[in-house]
Design a protein around this nucleic acid. Structure first.
Lengths: 330, 330
DNA sequence: ACATCGGCTGGGAGCGCTCCCAATAATGCA
DNA sequence: TGCATTATTGGGAGCGCTCCCAGCCGATGT
């Protein structure tokens, strides 16, 4: 049987409250009492019962991470690896537990909402929000602290956001291609129900405009961030505009797919730039926009912890700046 | 404020216990009382307080999944995607929560052990156990139910195991290559501190022996399951035995690396078979041993739930059978 | 030497829930 | 119709912990 605080108290010859104070790091404990208690804790291998504690403190010391993607996507997109890494690191440091939920089918959604809103977690981190997902707003109503990674389409939907400046990143990529002498630059976008995609497309346009190039809808194809979709989009682009001399893909995976199709088509002359700067990009020698994903995860947690601890303004948006990792494909 | 069971009882005009009975699905409740209670629950949007419940039931309704790999590995190896998918599906169906932990650095290990042994979870699922990891044994001592996915090197270390018959899978792959007329079949193994690797190598040998082919250490190279290591191993094999006509890689990622190197070397004549049958394999047209990973996850959960519910013999090993997915590379 | 003060300390109360047992209502049978 | 059973129901007790408040004790001030 696990020892209770009462047993520790008896063992140390002190009162229940004193043990509690030591465990929770209160300063109002005499030095030798504290020592005796610590010894007892050690000897009895005492761990506080989390359930009992959270029953009275109303805190659970767990934070949920909701990723609105299928496990397949989550586990194949290195973006998440970085983010989860950052999140896990920062969270572990604060002694909280991480509960990961992958956005399951729509049918499980109500159960998820009930769970998150049911006081089982102290706060929620949302990643890869789609469309007009009502979850953050719902959490807001319920008073559950939440931080979103990547701005949702409708800014009113989420109060607290950490994001990467996707527009700036895309802009960087396009300007780089232009500096390399490319003029017929195509782009493969992500799903347009995600703001990331909109922003990256915007940055692409800005880049063209800033150089006095005109944009053409011929040079824009849609994908869904997957390798597969990148390959298909590239085939399409190649068919429409055989004269293209560069491709800016809104994700590394799509860039990889693009690269594959270009190679198969014998078009090694076409420069390719991706987005994410994942390990894949590095390995494939792909020039890519580096997102500080790990930092993003870290910042999300930092923000969430502040929210949980009470403070914080009603809204906050933190935008991190990407940079370009230049490699062989451009 | 969230309503308590007491408030629901008052609202429904019944006693506290009756509400508890309805919530927990006891049959000893009159039909119209039950209806009234359900209505009250609905109206008040009542969710039981998990902490209070677990304080008395001594169960937390959470299960931990410990993956002994870095987030990078976890998020890049599709094996985990399938397993997690199966686990999550089966677990959700039983109303339990999943807590994912990636095996962090060794320094965080004691904290993890304390957490898992501290009664914070009802059971533990272990994946990708390395070497002689003491964790399952430790959990056994502490009386924490645990199920291991993939047999650890030392069978004494884990009582309850769900595994794929890796030896049979490798055997299948090699026999297939032989049927296709290959005779100088090389293999790229995984890290030999994992039983999977040992078994796959064993199956490879069995396959050769069964066809009267002799094995040669020239044809065996070591990898660590990564694309990178597959590429390196292939370069090594090619240098040692330029006459090889097939490669059996113990993971898809390594097979992909191998394929890349072979292509670069202009050796399209060499057949390649991988292991895992991940989405990557399908996409790349790679022949691969299909592991029923999702089933494995599902079975692990099923077994764990039985353990948690008390029953079950002291030891159990469930072995799932793989099959071959034949594609263009062989 | 005595009253006062403040730092420590101990124990009561209660968080929301399940379990157990006694009380009550309903049902069956003679 | 009366009594034994059985089906439901309600409330006390207590899970282990934190919070609050009162009590204790030595130290300080006069």
């Amino acid at each position: 049987m696990r020892p209770t605080i009462e047993q520790v108290a008896a063992h140390a010859g002190v009162g229940r409250s004193t043990v509690s104070r030591v465990v929770n790091g209160s300063s109002k404990v005499g030095p030798k009492t504290r020592l005796a208690v610590q010894k007892a804790i050690e000897e009895l291998r005492y761990t506080p019962n989390r359930a009992a504690r959270s029953l009275v403190t109303r805190r659970t010391d767990t934070v949920a991470l909701v990723i609105s993607e299928s496990p397949e996507r989550v586990f194949s997109d290195p973006f998440f690896a970085g983010a989860v890494r950052g999140i896990a690191a920062q969270l572990t440091a604060s002694g909280k537990q991480l509960l990961i939920t992958m956005a399951r089918s729509g049918s499980e959604r109500p159960a998820l909402e009930a769970y998150l809103g049911g006081g089982h977690v102290d706060g929620v981190l949302l990643l890869s929000l789609h469309h007009e997902d009502p979850l953050p707003a719902r959490l807001g109503e319920l008073g559950v602290p939440a931080v979103v990674g990547g701005r949702p389409l409708d800014p009113a939907l989420a109060a607290h956001v950490v994001d990467v400046d996707n527009q700036a990143g895309a802009y960087l990529a396009v300007r780089h291609l232009i500096e390399r002498g490319r003029h017929r630059i195509a782009t493969i976008t992500g799903p347009m129900d995600m703001l990331v995609s909109v922003h990256r497309l915007g940055g692409y346009r800005d880049g063209l405009i800033a150089s006095g190039l005109e944009e053409s809808s011929d040079l824009v194809a849609g994908g869904d961030f997957s390798e597969q979709s990148g390959a298909e989009a590239t085939r399409e682009l190649l068919a429409r505009r055989p004269d293209l001399d560069a491709v800016f893909a809104a994700s590394d995976l799509m860039a990889l797919g693009s690269l594959r199709v270009l190679r198969e088509a014998g078009r090694a002359d076409v420069a390719v730039v991706g987005f994410d700067d994942s390990p894949f990009a590095e390995q494939a020698g792909l020039t890519s926009v580096h997102q500080p994903v790990e930092d993003m995860g870290r910042e999300m947690v930092r923000l969430l912890l502040m929210l949980i601890d009470g403070g914080m303004p009603s809204r906050s948006v933190l935008v991190l700046t990407p940079h370009l990792a230049i490699r062989e494909t451009s």
